[in-house]
């Protein structure tokens, strides 16, 4: 990959890449199948290091792992609604991130869960928080010759819940009009911390820090959640296109932020 630079692309699940090559979004000389690299297939959890999610691990391995699904329900949500079952056999969270679409269903969950992207390249290895990974539609911090190897997600804190909800006009097989991924940590009767990330409302997935931070110390009530949802709407910078208008998307950020926070709070209450 280093040799071909911009003329090379990594192939993991291929469910985005092969379509992009067919419509000539990328003109490449080399496609490198990375599925045989052991590190990229790692899916492991430890209470000390948290989750290591290899970039070539397909979605089904995430959502069929009951242990991991229980630890990171938001990640489970994302993994189980990307494409249909056929797509999930091949597509993975890593590819979803590396492809850097603003509408990516996995990225809000990764941001909400505090994931970092582990990158390897000709100049060595580096790690980047996922909220800083995407730089524009289809663009990321990956330099020519660099490869996303894995993602690390810290172990969940006590009383933590996470949820990803997207809105699509059908019930499957659509691109998110808006997606919202959140995590909430409870401390008794108040919110210890919350992270909110949005899909499809800007050139990149958006980390709505103000909305999340506002919840710190607040009671986990519908009222708090409604106010956080209003704050999240301010973070959205959507465009109008065939999938939705600016007004519809901002409205949906409010609706989905409310719903995902309420779900995450419920999950946090049920969590150990």
């Amino acid at each position: 990959m280093a040799e071909k630079g911009a003329k090379a692309r990594a192939l993991a699940g291929g469910t985005d890449l092969l379509v992009q090559l067919r419509v000539k979004r990328y003109i490449v000389d080399r496609v490198v199948d990375v599925k045989h690299i052991a590190e990229m297939n790692e899916l492991s959890y430890s209470d000390s290091k948290g989750l290591v999610l290899g970039a070539a691990v397909p979605c089904y391995r995430v959502y069929e792992d009951k242990h991991i699904s229980a630890k990171y329900p938001g990640l489970y949500d994302s993994a189980s609604l990307i494409g249909g079952i056929q797509i999930q056999t091949r597509a993975g969270i890593g590819g979803n991130l590396a492809n850097a679409a603003p509408s990516a269903d996995a990225i809000p969950s990764l941001i909400a869960l505090g994931a970092t992207a582990n990158i390897a390249g000709p100049k060595g290895k580096r790690s980047v928080p996922v909220e800083h990974f995407c730089t524009g539609p289809g663009k990321s911090v990956l330099q020519d010759g660099e490869l996303l190897v894995s993602m690390s997600i810290p172990p969940p804190q006590a009383k933590m819940g996470s949820t990803y909800i997207r809105f699509i006009p059908r019930n499957e097989m659509d691109i998110a009009v808006v997606g919202v991924g959140v995590s909430v940590v409870l401390n008794g009767n108040s919110i210890k911390s919350a992270r909110i990330a949005l899909a499809s409302v800007g050139p990149t997935p958006i980390f709505a820090t103000e909305a999340g931070n506002w919840l710190t110390g607040k009671a986990p009530t519908e009222d708090s959640v409604m106010q956080a949802a209003e704050a999240a709407k301010k973070a959205a910078k959507p465009i109008t296109d065939m999938r939705g208008t600016i007004e519809q998307r901002i409205h949906l950020v409010g609706v989905l932020t409310k719903r995902s926070l309420l779900s995450a709070i419920t999950r946090a209450k049920e969590a150990r």
Binding site: G13, G14, T15, I85, Q86, I87, T89, R90
Partner: peptide, 10 residues
């Protein structure tokens, strides 16, 4: 043993 779209696999 798992279903895939053969159009999206080389």
């Amino acid at each position: 043993g798992r279903i895939v779209n053969s159009c999206l696999m080389l």
